[in-house]
């Protein structure tokens, strides 16, 4: 199948496709950021996207979530075309993402951050809130309880009323993942979740990723820089350089691929 390594197990290949990107191309004016990018991801997979700085990885995420509109190509999520849809509708269809540089609502409380992600599922309208109807009270209570459950899962329960910007870095990362999961996604896009973490924190993050994948039955597509994380948890990897895919395969195959080594370390490293 297009956009996948050939040697994956037949059990995985039999699963339905969740995300299918074909011939994705994006130009910033005349700068080619992404060229003919194709990836097909099946339900429940954990796929990595790696590449040196400026390879176009984050641009791919921005294209999937509708931040940019691609110059060409198609992005299908569970069969539905995403190109041209506004971001918030794409998110509401069941795709969530985090950001490379954390983007929390820094002046609001930890709980508010999660509650905001629930807004599309709030289930009450403007009139309910202005007149404080019974539906408002019931739904609001249910929302707060669900959000608190989320915070408990992520070990943030006792900080629910702290201002999000005041949390230590590691907890901010976690809160961002909690907020993304509160949108009730089936596909989670993680943009450099390990950025700025030490090896010990990366180990904890790997545990966390495995845990949320099982608990919420997620498909995960992650962009990462840190080999320690990618090589350990991804089932297969796509490598980008200068906007193009240069390799694809299981972690151990990619690690030995001379093109990949060249992209990361420069030509001299091979000689």
């Amino acid at each position: 199948m297009k956009g996948r390594p050939e040697n994956l197990s037949p059990e995985v290949e039999a699963r339905p496709v969740i995300l299918e990107i074909e011939g994705l191309t994006h130009y910033f004016d005349s700068l080619r950021a992404v060229h003919d990018f194709s990836v097909t991801i099946k339900e429940g997979e954990l796929v990595g996207l790696i590449g040196p700085n400026g390879a176009g990885k984050t641009t791919v995420f921005n294209l999937i979530t509708g931040v940019y509109r691609p110059t060409a190509g198609s992005i299908r999520y569970e069969g539905a075309q995403l190109v041209g849809l506004p971001s918030h509708e794409i998110i509401q269809m069941g795709i969530a993402r985090t950001f490379q540089n954390i983007r929390l609502f820094a002046n609001l409380t930890v709980l508010d951050n999660v509650l905001i992600a629930y807004h599309p599922h709030a289930g009450y309208g403007l009139a309910d809130s202005i007149f404080r109807s019974r539906r408002y009270r019931e739904r609001e209570k249910a929302m707060i309880e669900r959000s608190q459950e989320f915070l408990e899962i992520f070990g943030l329960a006792d900080r629910q009323n702290d201002i999000a910007g005041s949390l230590p870095y590691g907890l901010q990362r976690r809160l961002e993942i909690a907020r993304a999961l509160a949108t009730q996604p089936r596909l989670l896009l993680l943009d450099e979740p390990a950025a700025g973490m030490n090896p010990q924190e990366i180990d904890q993050l790997m545990e966390l990723i495995h845990f949320i994948r099982d608990r919420f039955q997620l498909t995960i597509f992650l962009v990462e820089h840190r080999m320690r994380l990618v090589m350990n948890i991804c089932e297969w990897i796509t490598v980008m350089d200068f906007g193009e895919i240069i390799a694809r395969g299981k972690p151990e195959e990619v690690r030995g691929n001379p093109q990949v080594i060249e992209a990361y370390l420069g030509r001299q490293a091979i000689r």
Partner: peptide
């Protein structure tokens, strides 16, 4: 009452970070 509702929080989220708000489905 508007500000204390879910819509109010959505309004606040736009002030805090418009793109992040859009990307949590607002």
């Amino acid at each position: 009452n508007l500000l204390h509702s879910s819509t109010g929080r959505a309004i606040l989220s736009v002030r805090e970070d418009e793109r992040a708000a859009e990307l949590v489905g607002i």
